[in-house]
Simulated assay, not measured.
Amino acid sequence: MGVALHRAGAYTHLMNEEDKENLKWLHIFNKYDLYSKSKVRVDIEEVKPYYLSLIEKYFPAKLRW
């Protein structure tokens, strides 16, 4: 969704006011996105443990919606 949202404006009809306010931060931080700016293809299996450790650290085992 990220690429379609900030490049093409897709899905804006689904956004609430908080989402719209946070969108400005997406535009600001987008220039620091090293994965999409790199010509080197990311090996998902190589970075997967890192992201799983972040999920384990910052998300509870059981989410309540």
Rank of each mutant, 00 (worst) to 15 (best):
D43P: 02
E56M: 11
R7N: 09
L63R: 12
Y32N: 05
K62H: 04
K20Q: 11
D19L: 01
F59N: 12
W25L: 08
P49M: 07
Y11G: 02
R41I: 14
K37Q: 09
F29P: 01
V47E: 12
T12D: 10
Y50G: 01
K57R: 13
R64E: 14
Y51W: 15
R64Y: 14
L14W: 07
P60T: 02
K31I: 12
Y51F: 15
L63H: 11
K24N: 08
L14T: 15
V40H: 02
K62L: 01
V47I: 12
V3M: 09
P49T: 07
H6P: 02
Y32E: 14
E56C: 06
H13Y: 12
L23D: 00
S38L: 00
E21S: 07
E21N: 03
K37A: 02
Y32Q: 06
N16T: 04
K31G: 03
M1F: 05
S53V: 00
K39D: 11
M15S: 06
W25I: 02
W25F: 10
N30Y: 00
K20C: 12
Y50A: 08
E18Y: 04
N22M: 13
H27T: 03
L23K: 00
Y35W: 13
W25H: 14
H6K: 14
N22I: 07
K57E: 11
E45V: 07
L54C: 03
R41W: 05
R64L: 10
D43F: 04
A8M: 12
N16W: 00
W65V: 05
D19Y: 00
Y50H: 14
D19C: 10
E17L: 07
P49L: 14
E17H: 03
L34M: 09
I44F: 10
E17G: 06
Y50P: 02
N22C: 06
L34V: 14
P49W: 08
L14Y: 04
A10C: 08
G2I: 08
K37S: 04
E18M: 08
P60M: 03
E21A: 04
